[in-house]
Simulated assay, not measured.
Amino acid sequence: YFKDENYIMRAILNSSHLILGANVNPNIIYVSYHSIKDLATPAKDKIELYKCFKQLNLDATLHLIQDEKDIDGKMIKSLEHGMRMTDKALFRKELPLMLEKLKD
């Protein structure tokens, strides 16, 4: 059982929590990759979250993986939940971009 406060912290589209986070640290960089074909977690929820990030003027990039043409076999290996993407591949691609944004 989670107390209401615990649930609210985990409710991804909780607007008051998103606003609080944006006010505490507006310099967080958000990057996600999400498959449109993900049956475990609907893409529409991730899309709504990133709309909220944008409305809060946060640096947020959502890469929607549409179909087989987006599978490169190196980073993105399937259209299923998680896309069989490793943390190592994700960091190799995104970390240099984030560090460049944060260097100043």
Rank of each mutant, 00 (worst) to 15 (best):
S16T: 10
H17N: 08
H17I: 06
H17D: 03
L18Y: 04
I19Y: 04
I19C: 03
I19R: 02
I19E: 06
L20T: 03
A22N: 07
N23D: 13
N23K: 11
N23H: 11
N23G: 15
V24Y: 10
V24E: 04
V24I: 15
P26R: 01
V31Q: 04
S32A: 15
S32G: 07
S32R: 08
Y33P: 01
H34C: 08
H34F: 09
H34G: 02
S35V: 04
K37M: 09
K37R: 15
K37F: 09
D38Q: 09
D38I: 06
L39K: 12
L39I: 11
L39M: 15
A40Q: 11
A40I: 09
T41M: 13
T41F: 14
T41Y: 10
T41H: 12
P42D: 14
K44W: 14
K44I: 14
K44S: 15
D45P: 07
K46F: 05
E48L: 13
L49N: 02
L49R: 03
L49S: 03
Y50A: 02
K51F: 11
C52G: 05
C52F: 10
K54M: 08
K54Q: 13
Q55K: 11
Q55P: 07
L56N: 02
N57Q: 13
N57C: 13
L58D: 00
L58V: 01
L58N: 04
A60E: 01
A60T: 02
T61Q: 09
L64Y: 02
I65G: 00
I65A: 01
Q66L: 12
D67N: 14
E68K: 10
K69Q: 15
D70L: 02
D70Y: 04
D72H: 03
G73Y: 03
K74M: 10
K74A: 13
M75Y: 05
K77T: 05
S78M: 04
S78C: 08
L79R: 01
L79H: 00
L79P: 03
L79D: 05
L79A: 04
M83S: 01
M83L: 08
R84Y: 10
R84L: 10
R84P: 05
T86I: 04
D87H: 07
D87G: 14
K88Q: 13
K88P: 02
A89I: 06
A89F: 03
A89C: 08
L90T: 07
L90A: 11
F91K: 09
F91V: 08
R92Y: 11
R92M: 10
